[in-house]
Computed example of a mutant assay.
Amino acid sequence: MSPLALDLLGKMLVFDPDQRITVDDALCHPYLSSLHDIHDEPVWLRPFGFDFEQLSITEENIKELIWKESLLFNSDPVH
């Protein structure tokens, strides 16, 4: 791996988010210089949300999930 790649990776993997490299600084890093074009990079003004990954969990949902999980261990339950 190139020294520039290791440098960027090291800056991205800092545990403390206040000390971690920002997206803007990462895009300006020399390792990404061949990919970085300030005039061809869209800017999204709203933060990205992962709401699509969150299920609305109800008691019935939990019961069904537990039931499905238990079937993985015993696919022929006795009623």
Score class of each variant (00 low, 15 high):
9 L>I: 14
71 L>T: 02
30 P>L: 03
54 Q>P: 07
8 L>Q: 03
69 E>R: 14
16 D>K: 10
17 P>S: 03
27 L>Y: 02
53 E>Q: 12
51 D>N: 14
30 P>N: 05
70 S>H: 01
11 K>V: 07
79 H>N: 09
19 Q>N: 13
62 I>M: 06
72 L>F: 08
63 K>H: 10
49 G>S: 15
1 M>D: 12
23 V>K: 05
24 D>H: 11
37 D>P: 04
63 K>F: 11
38 I>Y: 02
47 P>I: 01
57 I>V: 15
59 E>F: 06
20 R>I: 03
11 K>S: 12
45 L>K: 15
45 L>E: 14
57 I>H: 03
70 S>N: 15
75 S>K: 14
40 D>S: 12
45 L>C: 13
63 K>M: 08
73 F>W: 00
1 M>I: 02
13 L>N: 08
54 Q>R: 12
75 S>N: 10
3 P>E: 12
60 E>V: 06
14 V>Y: 08
46 R>L: 11
64 E>Y: 02
36 H>T: 02
50 F>K: 11
78 V>P: 08
56 S>T: 11
52 F>R: 06
41 E>Q: 14
2 S>M: 02
50 F>A: 09
6 L>E: 15
26 A>Q: 07
16 D>T: 01
52 F>M: 03
29 H>L: 09
76 D>W: 04
34 S>N: 07
22 T>F: 03
10 G>R: 11
31 Y>V: 02
13 L>D: 08
42 P>M: 07
38 I>R: 13
18 D>R: 13
10 G>V: 04
60 E>T: 09
41 E>K: 09
35 L>H: 03
21 I>H: 10
4 L>M: 08
12 M>S: 06
38 I>Q: 05
10 G>Y: 04
63 K>A: 14
48 F>D: 11
56 S>Q: 14
68 K>T: 03
74 N>T: 01
41 E>S: 15
40 D>T: 08
47 P>K: 00
2 S>D: 12
